[in-house]
Design a protein around this nucleic acid. Sequence first.
DNA 1: CCTAAATTTTACCAATACTAAAATTGGGGG
DNA 2: CCCCCAATTTTAGTATTGGTAAAATTTAGG
Lengths: 216, 216
Amino acid sequence: MTNQTAAEAIIDTGKTEDPLGKRLRARRRELSLTLKEVADGAGLSVGFISQVERGLTVPSLSSLASIAGVLDSHVTTFLAQPEGKSQLTRHNERPIYAVDKAALSYERLSTTFPGSVLNSVIVHEPPGYRSEPIQHVGEEMFFVLQGAITLEVEDETTVLQAGDSIHFASMRRHSSWNHTAEPATILHVCTMDVFGDNPQQNQEPGNRAGHLNHHK
Amino acid sequence: MTNQTAAEAIIDTGKTEDPLGKRLRARRRELSLTLKEVADGAGLSVGFISQVERGLTVPSLSSLASIAGVLDSHVTTFLAQPEGKSQLTRHNERPIYAVDKAALSYERLSTTFPGSVLNSVIVHEPPGYRSEPIQHVGEEMFFVLQGAITLEVEDETTVLQAGDSIHFASMRRHSSWNHTAEPATILHVCTMDVFGDNPQQNQEPGNRAGHLNHHK
DNA sequence: CCTAAATTTTACCAATACTAAAATTGGGGG
DNA sequence: CCCCCAATTTTAGTATTGGTAAAATTTAGG
């Protein structure tokens, strides 16, 4: 509609934000590398890098990966990033989600804005509660606010006390267990779309089940 | 070296993990969509989607974006994801980073594994401490553990008490200020490479300054 | 200014992203 | 069992565009 370059039009999430090329250039400058250095490192030509950085061409995924490698960053760094309103939650006025009457409940901290990947909730685990082992895309972190829990990640079994934290890739099969007689409160952050919203474009919103199913 | 498909070889981060295609298929199944539905939605051909999902072809970034859109997900969802050892930190034995003697200090919670984007630290802000306003790629979340701080995100000024949280895109200019007479403890999570490590491949590691510079 | 490094531009080619259509699989019924 | 339909895979083939090499331009010193 407007006259942005093809690359810009293609890549960005719909919101106006820094396009791929700009970020690559910014990152290269940050490391004070020359086009040639990047090109050589990535096995590509100098001119091409120039084109990409100015949004005249869209690199293939493999090329982008190479370039990202030289820039010592992850591919995802350069793809559409969030933008939106910040979301405040007060400890006394948060939406609470009770998944099953068995008393496990969530307080949602983060919200969803276009491109957001961060998801945080406060989880209240009643004494004895045990979650099904699950694995999924992303990574996550637990920080124990109150009480203690036992966390199993694949073969490691760890007891976390208040103030302890753990960080791991969510693909590793994991489950948690409140082995104590006291309720435990955990701050849980993950990079996934736990609540099943975050529509990339507005399609039929309802009926999509979240991934937080401690299903059968 | 081995005989994985070209696509697999190209995309993955070096670690063995689910390649792009597998994830796309998994996601499609999750939404119980047909190849045709995805193809139509994305404006691509059925056969092509099939090829992509089986790793016979690598889609262009634009195509991938379209497909991701139909799958109601962010592009990054399907690109290399973390894998590694989980990292435990005990509240009494964490590495502490003191940035300037002015007494601001960090306890690092998360570690870095290939592809990880999650970064969490506990920040101790002494009374009166004020950080420089910064903006950068990514998104972040503050959760106040003790005390209170004033957080400014662009034009919004918010006072956060213990237990409160805020979540916003890091591109929005932000700074924090401990306006109280007590030290404040904040759990800070962001999707960026705060500590400046996370080498995608092992290049010269040293000398790269972190981004947490409250520099002049 | 003169030179050399860094970047941009141009012209061109070949790899491959993508298509269209035919071949295969896989259920359910009747 | 066989027909039918939906879903997926396979096969050829083309056109796009990702990518190159080299010349043109800019930038920065000395």
